[in-house]
Structures are given as structure tokens and as C-alpha cells.
Amino acid sequence: MTIGMTRGRSGHFVKEKTIAYAVLGLFLIYTLLPLYYLVISSTKTNTQLFSTFGLWFADDLNLVRNIEALFERQNGVFGRWLANSALYSVAGGVGAAAVATAAGYALSKFNFRGRNLTFAIILGTVMVPNTALVIPLFLLFANFGLTDTIWAIILPSTVFPLGVYLMKIYIDQAVPDELIDAARIDGASEVSIFFGIVVRLAMPGIVTVMLLAFTSTWNNYFLPLVMVTDPRLMPVTVGLAQWNELASAGSGGQALFSLVITGALIGVLPVVAMFLLLQRFWQGGLASGAVK
């Protein structure tokens, strides 16, 4: 009977494992297939996109030609878009991390009137989809004369309620109260406690929030679409969508599919690079946030 039970359990375990792997495998295919298609397609010319099999290379590779054409189109505006995306995402990521760390620290370690209410409200705003706020934000920014400037994208990107939540949870756990008390007794100022102790201990959390904010700004489409009209201020997402739509413009319509696809490939590379470079912090941060 004991043996039977063991067998049953291990059989059950193997079965669970197989299912888990199958699900993970499906998820992997689901994630990688579009990327694979993107890599293959970026080596094709516009006509090859429609005349050759989609999941394998054409007879000749045109990646270099596509990249050249991509960076030359419209006086090289694509390079500008990449730079814009980088600027918005770095500024948004760093800004969001700074605001979230300061706010998370205050919510975690200071007892003040209305703390729980404040935290509840911030949590509540996580539920409000960003896109719902874009039009009101646009009108607000228009009143300040800030539409069609970089601030119209950077300022909203630094407001990241989920980051505040994550940082509060993280600091609750990673920064012991005793350490702060000890520092105060030793005569450290509040500023040096924050920068010298809290920021250092919370670094994995900060990097996590920064990465999250970075990718969400990099991928943001609707906010920049509404806020800027000048192509020289557009990020990659809006610019490529604009080129893609040229195909259905009717007047002056052009099929720029090979450029859009190559642009999309180049557009995802920086995010992939960020994740690979900061993976160590990222994993640490995620795990610590998840425990509590």
C-alpha cells in the first residue's frame, strides 16, 4: 500500500510536470513566434514579403538594404524617433523610480495623518487605465502651452502608481526600522538617511520600478499620439504606426511594410538589451516584491 501510494504520487508529479512544461512551451512559442517572424521578415523587400513563405528567408537577404532605407526615409527621421524613445523612456524611468522611491519610503516609514488613506488612493489609481486620462491630460497640458513638447510625454510618464506601491512594499521589508533609528541616534540627517541607507538597500526594487516604467514608456502609444504632432518629437511607436497607415492613405499612399517591420525589429532591441543587462536586479526585485 505504501509502495502503491509512492507510485501514485510520483506518477501524479510527473504528469503535473509534463503539463507545466507543455503550458510553458506553448507560452514560449506564443512569445517567440512573433519575434521570429519579425527577424525573418526584416530581411525581405516589400515584394518578397508577399511573394515568399512568411516563416522562412527569401533567396536573398535584404536586411542591410532595409536598415539603410529605414534610416534614410523622410530625412532620417527614424534615428530621431529612436533617440526620442530613449529620452522619454530614460527620463520617464528615472523620474518614476525617483518619485516612487521617495513616496514609497514616506508611506512605509513615516507615521502621518492620512497615511492609509493616501496609500489607498494611490492603490486605487493603479486601477485607472492610463489611456482614460490621456484626453483630460491633453487639455490640461494645452492650457499650460506644453503640448507638442517633450514635457507632455515625460511628465505623465513619471507618475507611476504601481511603482509607488511596489516601493512601499519593498522598503517595508528591505529597510529595517532599527537601522533608521540607529542612524538617527548617530546624528545622521534625514537626507543622508534617505540617500545613504534607504536608496542603497532598496536598489533592486528601484531598478525594478525603473525597468517597468522604462518599458511602459517605450511601448506607450496613445499618450504620445495625442500629445505631439511634430514628427521630430515622436517616439518609435507613433512614427512607425504613421508609416504603416500610409498604406491605406488613399492619396499619396505607399506600401512601406518592409520599413515598418525593420523599424519594429530595431525598436524592440533596446528593451531586450535593457532586460538582459539589468536581469540580475530585475529578478531580485521581482522576487522580493512578491513575498509580502
Binding site: 523622410q74 504632432t229 504606426a241 504613421q242 497607415e245
Partner: peptide
């Protein structure tokens, strides 16, 4: 200025 075409430009 190329402000796009279609729905994006109208918006």
C-alpha cells in the same frame, strides 16, 4: 509637418 493620415491626423 507630417502629422500622419487617417484617424491619427483627424484626432
Amino acid at each position: 509637418v507630417n502629422a500622419g493620415q487617417g484617424g491619427a491626423q483627424h484626432m
